[in-house]
């Protein structure tokens, strides 16, 4: 059982966290513009590297905030963790209310 460094709470037990799979996948800007193949890729296809992997974790039983982590899937060692969203990514942005 590992210690995972939450950017807000510091190192905490793995059991406080929930795994969220691959990071940095943006919800498509316009899903209706995608063909079935493209939509399936967004829905189901994820990287599965043996080695460095950028992931999402949620500090579920703590501050409940999502974080981004870089971890080695062979050793499970976390190279870094940081706030989710602290990196460039493209995302569909539902407009804010006026």
């Amino acid at each position: 059982m590992q210690l995972i460094t939450c950017p807000w709470c510091g190192p905490r037990e793995e059991t406080e966290f929930r795994y969220g799979g691959q990071a940095d996948l943006a919800y498509p800007a316009d899903p209706s513009a995608l063909d079935d193949e493209q939509w399936a890729r967004f829905l189901f296809f994820r990287d599965n590297p043996k080695g460095t992997f950028a992931e999402r974790w949620c500090h579920d039983a703590g501050c409940r905030r999502w974080l981004r982590a870089v971890r080695d899937t062979r050793t499970y060692v976390f190279a870094e963790t940081g706030p989710y969203g602290s990196f460039p990514r493209r995302s569909a942005r539902p407009e804010r209310s006026a």
């Binding site: 590992q2 059991t15 799979g21 062979r74």
Partner: peptide, 13 residues
Amino acid sequence: DGYNGYGQRGAFH
């Protein structure tokens, strides 16, 4: 175990 891993070991909890 919840996370991706190739380590052939898991967490004790």
